[in-house]
């Protein structure tokens, strides 16, 4: 199979076949990121379509010195933001960014709870959208903080701060009932 960069070149020249290959290669990545941000499978499937349409129309504008996945996740981020702006969601249950960290005596229990997928998912869903996406990009996609900053369009320092708050909020959420 062609490299992602080569596929984009072919897409730019109108190859539907290359577009299908590109879709198969990246749709799950786009979907996972959208789902993490939206918590909505149907909306996330729509985002995949919108992102792939943007790729079809904008493949010629891809800068060869960029990383395809970073470029693609940046498009996904913007599409999700557009959708959220259209459907302003009630995030009243969102956890505060200024809550205190948990007691270190519970550290072992916290690790055990973080290994419980269902419980972790519940706590991830309660994070703000901005915190959730940073955790996803750092731990699901294994991206550098520089790449994450590029995708979400904010300074690297902001990415680090968001991650710090996300960690504290996850700990607090997971420690409930300990």
């Amino acid at each position: 199979m062609d490299s992602a960069e080569r596929l984009l070149e072919r897409i730019a020249s109108g190859s539907s076949e290359a577009m299908a290959d590109f879709y198969r290669q990246f749709e799950s990545k786009v979907y996972a990121f959208a789902l993490r941000k939206l918590n909505d499978p149907h909306g996330s499937a729509d985002i995949v379509n919108e992102v792939m349409m943007a790729v079809w129309q904008g493949a010629g504008g891809f800068q060869a010195n960029a990383k395809v996945s970073t470029w693609l996740l940046g498009i996904t981020h913007n599409k999700v933001i557009d959708r959220i702006r259209k459907n302003v969601r009630n995030e009243s249950e969102e956890l505060s960014e200024t809550m205190p960290d948990t007691d270190r005596t519970a550290a072992v229990d916290l690790v055990a709870r973080a290994q419980d997928a269902e419980r972790l998912s519940e706590c991830m869903e309660r994070l703000s959208q901005a915190h959730r996406e940073v955790v996803h990009l750092a731990f699901f996609e294994d991206l550098t903080y520089g790449e994450i900053a590029e995708i979400v369009g904010c300074p690297e320092g902001t990415v680090k701060t968001r991650m710090l708050h996300a960690k504290q909020n996850l700990k607090r959420c997971l420690s409930r009932g300990l």
Binding site: S16, M19, A20, Y23, R24, E27, S28, Y31, A32, L35, P41, A45, V48, N49, M52, M53, W56, A107, L110, V111, A112, A114, Q115, D116, A117, L120, S121, M124, V135, H136, A138, F139, F140, K167, L170, K171
Partner: peptide, 29 residues
Amino acid sequence: FLRAVRNTLKDQTVQSPGELGLKRFQKQL
């Protein structure tokens, strides 16, 4: 703690639209 979070997230299976999604996209295209 962070390692446990990462491992759990990575182990989660995401059921993406797959081939059905591709058909839908191709129709729209």
